[in-house]
Design a protein around this nucleic acid. Structure first.
Lengths: 197, 197
DNA sequence: TATCTGCATTGATGTATGATAAGAAAAGCC
DNA sequence: GGCTTTTCTTATCATACATCAATGCAGATA
């Protein structure tokens, strides 16, 4: 049967069936149990991960031991420490599985081969980078400018599914507030008769 | 005489002298006076800007009319709304000149031609994207996790030259605090006998 | 020189969010 | 089922930062 990654490539990156068969043996999938690390601070990141099933998070831990979630990655999302991967530096970040997760381990070999086989894939890769930048910029703009409540509302509309799957304290960590504050924000919203969750 | 952009290309993007002569007539430079817009909200961004001289800023304006600076770009930096440029969407952001500025207007033609001529240039372009992502991630990590004082100290070490060239209220806007708060942060640092500025 | 304008500082006060602690509820586990 | 552990909520108090208003100060302009 066709894997989630394979259909994704065909649908989004313009990879054809014959191209896929050339790539197939380079596609390595790995299963992670809840809590398991895909990347640990200090390691050099060697892969880009494509999440086929489950949910992963990309986060840092500050001096005081507090976690700050930069990004979530549910099904059909890519996740990686691009800085570490591309520049061969040891990572400052962690990636772990929030749920039992299976991920495609995309390495340089794969990317290289796929880019050779398909110019569309190369184009698509750039598209992903550009899109990633766009998201990060929006996020920064929001962190600078918006209140906790606004950020939470944005989160809900942007990731409605995650709002249910992810524990609240992680959402709080993503928003840059404490779980207690998020709880209060939610209470206020409930009083305002808001039912987005 | 060789322009700043030309030497930059040779030094960083692996462009050779003969390649450069092929590209030369595609390099369009434009001067902006202080305060002039390079990009205005609502426009589709058509260029990536390489700052040869001067200083520009990339920012948003929220509902209440407050500016939030996402990025500064001094000499030898690139600046663009990549989201708008790549996806042909109208921009949510502004770019304007903080000082009198001359910028190279890099469009798709140029990128396409340069990528054809030089595979190194293509590689270099990806490098810029990756690096950009890395910076944005660090910034997010910091906005989520660090106090105003920490963020200011980081700003100083990261952009020592900008600390002098940019008015304080813009630095405040970059840090996500009010000018008054920044003034107080500086006061506290001065008392602590800090002399980084 | 006098005046204007934009920027930085300062003080008084308000508010959103953090810290801490405790209890309630839910989820996992034997 | 009952137990433990994690997560969520609530309350109180503390604090970082915002807001508002006044003042100072320097560079531009007349």
């Amino acid at each position: 049967m066709e894997s989630a990654f394979e259909s994704y490539l065909k649908k989004n990156a313009g990879i054809t069936e014959p191209q896929l068969s050339q790539l197939k043996n380079k596609i390595i999938t790995k299963a992670f149990t809840k809590g398991e690390f895909l990347l640990h601070k200090g390691q050099v990141c060697r892969h880009s991960f494509f999440i086929e099933k489950g949910l992963a998070r990309f986060y840092s831990i500050d001096r005081e031991g507090k976690e700050h979630i930069i990004q979530f990655a549910p099904e059909n999302w890519f996740l990686s420490d691009r800085g570490s991967l591309f520049f061969n530096e040891s990572s400052e970040f962690f990636i772990d599985a929030i749920e039992d997760t299976t991920a495609v381990m995309i390495d340089e070999h794969f990317n290289h081969l796929a880019s050779e086989i398909s110019p569309q894939f190369r184009k698509y890769n750039e598209r992903i980078l550009q899109n990633h930048i766009r998201h990060l910029q929006k996020r920064i703009s929001q962190l600078i400018g918006a209140s906790a409540e606004e950020r939470y509302l944005d989160f809900i509309t942007l990731y409605p599914d995650l709002t249910l799957r992810v524990p609240q304290w992680m959402i709080a960590s993503f928003l840059g507030i404490t779980p207690e504050s998020l709880s209060r924000v939610r209470k206020v919203l409930a009083k305002k008769n808001f039912h987005g969750f």
